[in-house]
């Protein structure tokens, strides 16, 4: 049984179809990288999984269950599948520790002392413990993204979705975020990562998906996809991004 199963997913904005029938299976503990050129629908796919977008048709099954029924169910699903955004989107009105404690406090209604301990542990994991009382605007991009990852972790999700987590960062900060993600990957959590960091995808992923014009154009292990791509388009894309 797969953890997440996407069946013939379509999404259109008006007349423009962005996702044209996505089929995808994600197993427990898998690290999946999604690559593809700009506008190919990578973000839309991730956002659909988190129900930030409403699919036009098709099904998304989590533990074989379709959650897109009621608002309550959607919220429940979001506690199990959290997301990290390209632009971090830390809550500007809250400090670092408040940022990561808000959702578990309000949604999971967890005990305060327990939560505090957990928050500090999580911040420690992403190397941001000493910044716990800082306001987001006083952090660098890399620090913000690490806090955002901590925020996503705090819900004890089964899957974390990453939408180009390093694309908005200055080059010297990319490393620290990737380090945190590598550490996470080793901890056994399931991750779906949209990325332009090919080396990272290659090193870390169990599976790489190449998206093109709204469909999963090619997928396979990193070796298969990066070294022996079956399609011309895939090869062209890889050539384009490799320098």
């Amino acid at each position: 049984m797969s953890l997440l199963k996407i069946i013939d997913l379509h999404k259109a904005y008006g007349n423009e179809e962005v996702l044209k029938g996505i089929n995808l299976e994600v197993n427990q503990g898998e690290i999946i990288s999604i690559i593809g050129s700009s506008g190919s629908g990578k973000s839309t796919l991730l956002r659909s999984i988190n129900y930030l977008e409403r699919p036009s048709s098709g099904e998304i099954l989590f533990h074989d269950k379709n959650y897109f029924q009621t608002q309550k169910a959607i919220q429940k699903l979001r506690t199990k599948i959290t997301m990290v955004f390209q632009s971090f989107y830390l809550f500007e009105n809250l400090t670092v520790i408040e940022n990561i404690m808000l959702a578990p406090k309000k949604v999971l209604k967890q005990n305060k002392t327990f939560l505090r301990e957990k928050a500090l542990k999580t911040l420690d994991k992403v190397g941001m413990k000493e910044f716990q009382n800082k306001a987001p605007k006083h952090l660098s991009g890399g620090q913000k993204q690490r806090v955002a990852i901590a925020r996503a972790l705090m819900m004890d999700p089964e899957i974390i979705l990453f939408d180009e987590p390093t694309s908005a960062l200055d080059p010297e900060m990319v490393g620290e975020v990737l380090e945190v993600m590598k550490k996470l990957a080793r901890s056994g959590i399931t991750m779906l990562i949209v990325t332009h960091e090919m080396d990272f995808a290659r090193e870390l992923s169990d599976k790489v998906i190449f998206m093109n014009e709204g469909i999963v154009y090619e997928s396979g292990t990193p070796e298969e996809l990066f070294l022996k791509p079956k399609n011309k388009r895939t090869l062209e894309f890889l050539k384009r991004v490799s320098h």
Binding site: Q71, A103, V107, A152
Partner: peptide, 9 residues
């Protein structure tokens, strides 16, 4: 969206 994505209503 960030708030929604971690389950807040």
């Amino acid at each position: 969206e960030a708030a929604f994505s971690v389950g807040l209503n």
